[in-house]
């Protein structure tokens, strides 16, 4: 059974439409949610959690209709939106003391463990923490109630590379036993290269692609060649950049045969996203 199932989620704003977002997430998986700023990543996550009123669609968490069983479903979800910016004058221990009362499966020893792992002093106030430490505190809260599904919106943005790596290790170890899943959005694409099993790519409010990371990468290839080849191959390039030596761009893997005179290489997630978004502007 899927741990998370999103079906035809829709939200209409006067100048933006989040349309027909559907995907499933099995237990034991990490799904990276990518897309440029304003593409609809946060809107999708908020609509999934009823933080914004959806105009259509349904969400199932561990087989339960989220909108019919909101409280029960939220017991199974750990959600963070970037750094923790609530109750700036309160101490970490006060906030944790309040939070733990709401969760049936709050695990005090796990919480203490994360405090130690992230070097958080619970006698400090939120305003005394750096942006990165606030993200870590949000994570400690989200990870300490035995959540089966973690939904993390830009969890790595304020973190230094070492902390980001630590977090990715934590996420990987969380899904290892095959009972939990993680959905996280980021525009630090290299983080996803390291740990995402699936990629959900959202573009202009629509799900452009949802597939496993390897297949997603294999759909595209990077190509570079001489200026003289560009004119005849232009139409087959998703998008390209011209430079002093010729051009470099992104093609669909199925078109690789057309580029036999050029150099091709496997595409990485970041390049795919950059070129695909450029296609829009082309």
């Amino acid at each position: 059974m899927n741990l998370l199932s999103v079906k035809s989620l829709r939200k209409q704003y006067p100048s933006f439409l989040l349309d027909d977002i559907s995907f499933d997430l099995e237990p034991g998986c990490i799904m990276g949610f990518i897309g440029r700023n304003g593409a609809g990543k946060t809107t999708t996550m908020k609509a999934m959690l009823n933080l914004i009123k959806r105009d259509g669609g349904s969400v199932f968490v561990d087989g339960m209709d989220f909108f019919e069983n909101e409280s029960e479903c939220k017991q199974k979800i750990g959600f963070i939106m970037g750094e923790f910016n609530c109750y700036m004058r309160s101490k970490l221990k006060t906030i944790a003391d309040v939070t733990k009362r709401f969760y049936k499966e709050w695990d005090d020893s796990a919480y203490k463990g994360y405090l130690e792992k992230f070097s958080l002093d619970e006698n400090k106030k939120i305003r005394e923490l750096s942006a990165g430490m606030r993200v870590k505190f949000a994570l400690a809260l989200a990870l300490s109630h035995n959540a089966k599904l973690l939904i993390l919106d830009e969890p790595t943005s304020g973190l230094d590379p070492v902390s980001r790596n630590e977090l990715l290790d934590v996420l990987r170890s969380l899904v290892e036993d095959g009972t939990r899943s993680v959905l996280f959005s980021t525009h630090i694409i290299s983080d996803l290269e390291k740990c995402a099993d699936f990629i959900g790519y959202i573009k202009n409010g629509k799900l452009f692609d949802f597939t496993d990371t390897e297949s997603f990468r294999n759909k595209f290839m990077l190509v570079s060649g001489e200026q003289e080849h560009l004119e005849s191959l232009k139409t087959h390039l998703i998008s390209y950049k011209e430079n002093a030596f010729g051009f470099s761009g992104l093609i669909k893997a199925e078109d690789a045969g057309l580029f036999s005179d050029c150099r091709t290489a496997p595409a990485d997630l970041e390049s795919i996203m950059v070129y695909v978004e450029q296609e829009e502007e082309k």
Partner: peptide
């Protein structure tokens, strides 16, 4: 926001 994220409706 904090309250909306707690396991309550």
């Amino acid at each position: 926001l904090f309250t909306a994220l707690l396991p309550i409706s």
